[in-house]
């Protein structure tokens, strides 16, 4: 799986639809500028955003407002294309921990992330998905963050990486952890030092703090460098209910996701 680039509302959704149909999951990305309306006061935006419009009105930070609007428009359009609906027919709602979902739509799980000029959306029919993005060059090393982000095993692994790639490795681990926490609906609600991931030269797996395997086969983790600038990570939970293909549309409620950290203790 590779993230698919979307170039705005006029771009084709066929690649996304095909990928969801064939594999059940798609991660796509776009530029904020491609999805930002010229006028945030324009009539119709309230209908397009639904209940999120009230949240928009409470925001004063201009870049956050732009990313907020553009990411919701992208997510609803992508989900609508996959579901064969109109974007305005879908309502984006939030669980108590902040996890987004499409109200009344149980056959498609969604996740979104945005940073700087980038928007990322994850869609899956298979179970749960979480996505996260960060500027790959964003300084995280040496700010006191690594101790809050890394397990002891990860700290050792990060320090073993050549100095010039060390910060990028920390950013990769951070986006993986954010993606996973979004997938299970926890946001920032637990310590990131309770679980870790494999070093950059291996297929990504979740690990216990001591470095032994920590999650079952249902989980897959991915990281990509996008546009040579952004680290994008995805965590996908697929319990193997056969969510691929047309029959998936009729599948019942999404499964309750067990937290692998509980079995890791």
């Amino acid at each position: 799986m590779r993230p698919l680039r979307n170039r705005g509302p006029a771009d084709s959704w066929l690649p996304v639809r095909r990928e969801v149909e064939s594999s059940g999951t798609s991660v796509l990305y776009a530029a904020v500028a491609d999805w930002l309306p010229d006028d945030l006061e324009r009539p119709g935006l309230a209908a397009a955003l639904g209940r999120d419009h009230k949240r928009l009105l409470e925001m004063n930070h201009v870049p956050n407002r732009s990313r907020f609007v553009a990411s919701r428009l992208l997510l609803k359009s992508a989900a609508a294309a996959v579901l064969g609906a109109e974007p305005d027919e879908l309502e984006l709602a939030y669980k108590p921990g902040g996890r987004p979902h499409l109200r009344g739509v149980d056959q498609l799980d969604v996740s979104l992330s945005h940073t700087e000029e980038l928007l990322v959306v994850g869609l899956t029919r298979n179970g749960r998905i979480g996505v996260d993005a960060e500027n790959a060059g964003r300084r995280m090393l040496g700010l006191g963050t690594e101790r809050q982000v890394c397990t002891p095993y990860e700290l050792e692994a990060v320090l073993a990486v050549p100095r010039e790639r060390r910060n990028g490795e920390l950013v990769r681990l951070w986006t993986l952890k954010e993606a996973y926490s979004k997938a299970i609906g926890q946001g920032l609600r637990f310590r990131f030092t309770e679980f870790g991931f494999t070093p950059e030269d291996r297929q990504v797996q979740m690990l216990r703090p001591d470095g032994t395997p920590g999650a079952g086969w249902e989980w897959s983790f991915h990281s990509w460098l996008v546009d040579d600038s952004y680290m994008v990570s995805a965590a996908v939970y697929d319990p193997g209910f056969g969510g691929r293909g047309p029959a998936a549309a009729a599948r019942p409620l999404l499964p309750v996701v067990p937290d692998p950290r509980l079995s890791a203790r």
């Binding site: 004063n60 930070h61 870049p63 940073t115 809050q148 951070w174 920032l188």
Partner: peptide
């Protein structure tokens, strides 16, 4: 913190 000041998750860690 987020809506007015633009704090994101990395800034909160910081």
């Amino acid at each position: 913190l987020q809506h007015d000041l633009g704090f994101d998750s990395v800034m909160l860690l910081q």
